[in-house]
Amino acid sequence: GGGDQEEGQAVTLRLSHQWPQATTEEGDFRAVLAERFAQRVEERTGGQVKIRIYPNASLVEPTEQYKAITQGALDMSVFPLDYASGEVPQFSITLMPALVQSHAQAQNWKEAEIGRRIEQIAEENGIKILTWIWNAGGIGVRQGDPVVSPEDVDRGAVARAAGPRVEQMLRRAGYSITSMPSSEIYNAMQTGVLDVAVTSASSFCSYRIYEVTEAYTSPTENTFWFMFEPLIIGTEQFNQLTPEQQEIFEEVGAELQQFAYEASEQDDAQCEQQFRDAGVTVATMDDAAFEQWREISQPVWEDFSREVEGGQELMELARKVPAE
């Protein structure tokens, strides 16, 4: 990537993400976070490190960002880690259906044993996590009533959920599955490719999916979908920075941590309101419904523990994370 540098020479890194372009103040919070990160890094390095942001999947397909980073075509991304589960199956622990139940629990991952294991696996596979970002997901339905419990599933309808494990669970619930990045949901819903989409509340709003749905299940009460979408940099690219620059990267990443957590939680409520304002039928998931989803997710958890190297251990560590 642009990481090669001689003493005192300025470098430009490429950061790609799939959300609409934002400013440091306004937009999808993941895109805002990228803008703020770029701005602060440039300030603190005195212009020695510039980060050029390619929003809206304008550079690489969202699911290809991991490979692009490890091959050096790209340097950084705000990346839904499970998109790379084809290459690194362990990453699916970060999008396991009905495993994480609340933002509080998600935020406990970073300091827990599972957090260190994820960082370790990521670095072994060529990426370094700078800021932890978690998103709660909603369920959007193109036509019909909201999907609250597995009983509401319209058999054969086509669903998308980011990541194979949640999709396996939805398949058990009776859906047809087509896989696509969240940036393609709007178009797919509009053209009828997709009947049901599960994605982060933030994506539901920044892609204006309320324009093409009739019903929405908001994650403000419960959700079976929590996805980890950290700000990452390629380890090789990171190692090519000077020690001072590396320190700046880590510090700026840590400074933005609180913003990432708070903005994600706020988005759930704000997005729910946007759906209501757009005249969409909005529902929430009660504890009983959540338990039903968790029940049909069990075989998927078991598959993961059995099929993936070290899956059993990851699963156990993840289940130890305190809920509050």
Partner: peptide, 13 residues
């Protein structure tokens, strides 16, 4: 030339 690594993926994707 380092960016050439991604050429195969580009075509495939």
């Amino acid at each position: 030339p380092a960016q050439l690594d991604f050429f195969g993926d580009f075509v495939f994707n």
